[in-house]
């Protein structure tokens, strides 16, 4: 049982170093968002910024790949990403087709180059 829980110090670290610094931005959003009127013009801008940041997260993973993804050469990562988008456009805007296509290019490229 104790191997499931691990040591308490690590769990406290999770709360203080992981949960709190992360959740605080949701709390700030809660405080700012609970009073704003749904028709407020500023919400259109906020949505644009939120969507743009998703674009940033996408690019961040491509240029600074985490963990095992770093073992895939940069040209292969970008080729797979572009291939996925092109396949998505060609196959009637199918997200599934795009994701599968991108993964096949990624794995094929990695296998071919190593």
């Amino acid at each position: 049982m104790s191997s499931f829980i691990g040591d308490w110090h690590a769990l406290w670290m999770l709360l203080i170093v992981g949960v709190l610094p992360n959740e605080i931005w949701r709390v700030f959003g809660f405080l700012a968002g609970r009073k704003i009127d749904e028709g407020a013009e500023i919400l259109v801008w906020v949505r644009a910024v939120a969507t743009a940041i998703i674009g940033c997260v996408i690019m961040q993973v491509l240029i600074v790949p985490p963990g095992a993804l770093a073992s895939v050469p940069t040209p292969v990562r970008f080729s797979a990403f572009i291939a996925g988008f092109v396949i998505y456009l060609l196959v009637r805007r199918s997200v599934l087709a795009g994701v599968i296509g991108a993964e096949l290019v990624l794995l094929g490229g990695k296998w071919w180059l190593t």
Binding site: G18, N22, W25, G29, G33, R34, D37, E38, V46, I53
Partner: peptide, 18 residues
């Protein structure tokens, strides 16, 4: 961790009024 989480703020602000 905190820098990576700033993106959550605009998402919450955009959703709650809906």
């Amino acid at each position: 961790v905190s820098l990576s989480a700033i993106r959550l703020l605009p998402m919450v602000v955009a959703l709650l009024p809906m």
